[in-house]
C-alpha cells in the first residue's frame, strides 16, 4: 500500500518533470530512486544544488538526494572523507587540498567563482586606514588584514592580490580571527587596517560608516572560489551515480546562469527567465530575504567548467606557503572526465 502510493507519487513527479524536459518516461520509471547525499553550506553559492533539488532534476535522474547543511567550508570535505556525504560543494581551502593529497576527495566540476562585476567579496579599509592613504587594493601591501584562518579562501585571496601587484603574503600581516563576526569586531575596533568580507557584510559595514570599500575581489583577481567534489572511491565504484548527479547539477547550473548571470550590452545585470522563482528557492534554502540574496549572487559557469589554471595556481600557492605537501601534483586534485572538460 505504502509502496504503491510512493511509487504513484514518484511517477507523477517524474512524469511531469520528464514531460517538461522532453525526456522519454520509460528510463526514469525503470528503477526506484537511488539515494545520495550532498554536503552544502546555507549560502547562495550553493544555489544550483538547491535549484536541482527543488525543481526535481535529481529525481529526474533517478536520484533521491539529501542535503546536509554545514556551517563552515572546512567541514564539507571532511564529511565527504568520512563518508557522511557522497558529494560536497564549497569553497576551496588548503585543508581541502590536504585531503585531496591523501586521496580522500577529488574535484569533479566547478561551483561559483569570483568574476568581474559580480559582487561576492570586497576589500574594506577602516576609516583611519583609508584616511592614512589606503585607497586601492594595491595599497594593502604592508597592512594588517583580518582573515578567518590560515589556509582559508581569504588567505588565498590575499595571495592572489599579492601576485597581481608584485608583493607576497609576507608583506602583509594576516590576523587570523576564526570567523567573520570576530573579523568585523576587530575591524570596527580598529585592530586591523582592512578585511576581505562577504558582500552582505561589506555593504552593511559601509552603510554603518564603519569603513570604506576599496573594490571587489572579482574585479581585481577573478578565481575559482568553489567546486563540486566527491571521493575518488565513489568516482571509481559508483560512476553512474556521479554521472547522474553531475547531469542534474549542470541542468540547474545552466538555469541559474541564465536567470542571474546575464548582462546587457552596457554590462549591467539583466534578470533572466525564472528569476523570481529561482530567487525564491535560494532564499528559502538559505533562510535569507530575497533582496539580500539577490545582492550577492555569485557567477557560475553554465557548463560547470573549472578555471583549471587557477586550481593549479591554488595548489602551488599553498605549497609555497608550506601548507600543502610539496609532492602533490596539482592536476591530480581534479577528475573532470564526467563534467566533460
Amino acid at each position: 500500500m505504502t509502496l504503491a502510493r510512493l511509487t504513484r507519487r514518484a511517477v507523477i513527479a517524474t512524469a511531469g518533470a520528464a514531460f517538461a524536459a522532453g525526456i522519454p518516461m520509460s528510463a526514469a520509471l525503470a528503477q526506484p530512486l537511488e539515494k545520495a547525499t550532498v554536503g552544502v553550506l546555507a549560502l547562495s553559492s550553493s544555489g544550483p544544488i538547491f535549484i536541482a533539488k527543488a525543481k526535481g532534476y535529481f529525481e529526474k535522474e533517478g536520484l533521491d538526494v539529501e542535503l546536509k547543511m554545514f556551517t563552515s567550508a572546512q567541514q564539507v570535505p571532511v564529511a565527504v572523507t568520512s563518508g557522511d556525504a557522497d558529494f560536497g560543494v564549497t569553497g576551496l581551502t588548503a585543508g581541502f587540498y590536504n585531503l585531496a593529497s591523501k586521496g580522500a576527495v577529488t574535484i569533479i566540476a566547478a561551483q561559483s567563482r569570483d568574476e568581474p562585476s559580480f559582487p561576492l567579496s570586497a576589500y574594506l579599509a577602516t576609516n583611519a586606514a583609508f584616511d592614512a592613504g589606503l585607497k586601492t587594493p594595491a595599497d594593502l601591501k604592508g597592512k594588517r588584514i583580518a582573515i578567518t584562518t590560515v589556509g582559508s579562501t581569504f588567505h588565498y585571496m590575499i595571495g592572489l592580490l599579492a601576485q597581481k601587484h608584485g608583493f607576497t603574503v609576507k608583506d602583509v600581516t594576516m590576523v587570523p580571527l576564526q570567523d567573520v563576526p570576530k573579523m568585523v569586531a576587530a575591524f570596527k575596533g580598529g585592530q586591523v587596517d582592512a578585511i576581505i568580507a562577504p558582500s552582505t557584510v561589506s555593504r552593511q559595514l559601509v552603510a554603518d560608516g564603519a569603513g570604506k570599500m576599496l573594490g571587489w575581489v572579482g574585479d581585481e583577481t577573478p578565481w575559482q572560489l568553489g567546486a563540486l567534489f566527491t571521493a575518488p572511491k565513489t568516482m571509481k565504484d559508483r560512476r553512474p551515480l556521479v554521472e547522474k548527479f553531475v547531469r542534474a547539477y549542470k541542468t540547474a547550473l545552466a538555469e541559474y546562469h541564465a536567470a542571474f548571470n546575464g548582462k546587457d550590452a552596457a554590462g549591467n545585470l539583466v534578470k533572466g527567465p525564472g528569476y523570481d522563482e529561482l530567487l525564491g528557492i535560494i532564499a528559502d534554502a538559505t533562510k535569507q530575504k530575497p533582496d539580500i540574496v539577490a545582492a550577492g549572487l555569485p557567477y557560475v559557469d553554465p557548463q560547470a567548467r573549472l578555471l583549471v589554471d587557477d586550481i593549479v595556481n591554488q595548489v602551488k600557492f599553498w605549497q609555497s606557503e608550506g601548507q600543502v605537501d610539496k609532492a602533490l601534483d596539482p592536476k591530480s586534485v581534479m577528475d573532470l572526465s564526467i563534467a566533460g572538460q
Partner: peptide, 21 residues
Amino acid sequence: EMIGAEYGIGAFVLMAGNLMQ
C-alpha cells in the same frame, strides 16, 4: 589563540585542524 595569534600551541593546533594535517 583563536584570536589573531601568530604563534602558540593553541594557534598551532587550530591551524593543523584547519589544514586537516
